[in-house]
Design a protein around this nucleic acid. Structure first.
Length: 259
DNA sequence: ATGGCATTTAAAAAATGA
């Protein structure tokens, strides 16, 4: 079972890139973030034609998340709101049970500028995610928290750590929040397989960041204990970042032994 | 240090991203 996450940065603007990558990578399950499309503008017909069913939670102009699964797989939505704040209207979280695995697709707030209200919102959102994650672990079922966490967990995950220490993606509070979440009993799948390698999932559009490999690792897979021994492979499809009209993120995937 | 680019909505320019 190949499971991917991809911040597309506009699902309609990137549709050719998304379809091309789906055809090439053929993942079974894909979490998308930053649809930048209202609910009714999601390109469901094209996605279906490519061989996938979709559950999505759109929002006008910003945010938006989706879970795609290959036609024929059993997929059921579990929820589309992160508990803990009834006032929160941003579409950043979606849960679906797919073939016995609880897939939690998330788009954690960016948080810049920090400090400020956006950074406060990020930390609050992170705490709500942490609360939800704790409840999910108690079910003792296979769960994956995956998506754009907007956090570089360690210095190994940033091309120039000293440049980023005051940024909302790398401030100590945010790294600590990520660490606290993982410490509940989650496994960072990429780091489990590649503990010491420089691996990035995002490159800025500016200053030829991709060409210089000035990247960040901010898209993550956190596995519940039931899945850790089934993790077989993981990879960033970084060549996709070099395509025309591409997202600033690259797709990332893992393989889970489904038996 | 700053600004660099790309998306959206909506019809020019602003907000957002990381």
């Amino acid at each position: 079972m190949k499971i991917a996450t991809y911040n597309v940065n506009g699902v309609n603007g990137r549709l050719p890139v998304l379809l091309r990558w789906l055809g090439e990578a053929k993942p079974d399950i894909i979490c998308l973030q930053e649809l930048k499309a209202p609910q009714e503008k999601f390109p469901e017909a094209e996605i279906n034609k490519a061989g996938y069913n979709a559950i999505w939670h759109g929002q006008k102009q910003w945010n938006g998340v989706a879970i795609l699964s290959k036609t024929g797989l059993k997929a059921e939505e579990v929820g589309r709101a992160l508990p803990g704040d009834a006032e929160d209207v941003q579409s950043r979280y979606l849960e679906a049970m797919v073939e016995g695995i609880l897939i939690c697709c998330l788009y954690l707030p960016n948080g810049n500028p920090a400090p400020g209200p956006k950074f406060d919102y990020k930390l609050k959102w992170f705490q709500r995610l942490t609360n939800r994650a704790k409840a999910l672990l108690e079910f003792k079922i296979p769960v994956i928290l995956l998506g754009d966490f907007n956090v570089m967990p360690t210095e190994l995950d940033v091309y120039k750590p000293e440049r980023w220490v005051k940024d909302a993606l790398f401030r100590p509070e945010v790294r600590e929040a990520f660490h606290n979440l993982v410490a509940q009993g989650w496994t960072d799948a990429i780091r489990k397989l590649y503990p010491n390698e420089k691996i990035y999932t995002f490159w800025d559009y500016f200053r030829n960041a991709y060409g210089r490999d000035a990247g960040l690792r901010i898209d993550h897979f956190l596995l519940s204990p039931q899945l850790v021994d089934k993790l077989k492979n993981a990879k960033v499809d970084r060549h996709v970042r070099g395509w025309e009209k591409t997202s600033d993120h690259a797709p990332v995937w893992i393989e889970i032994d489904s038996k």
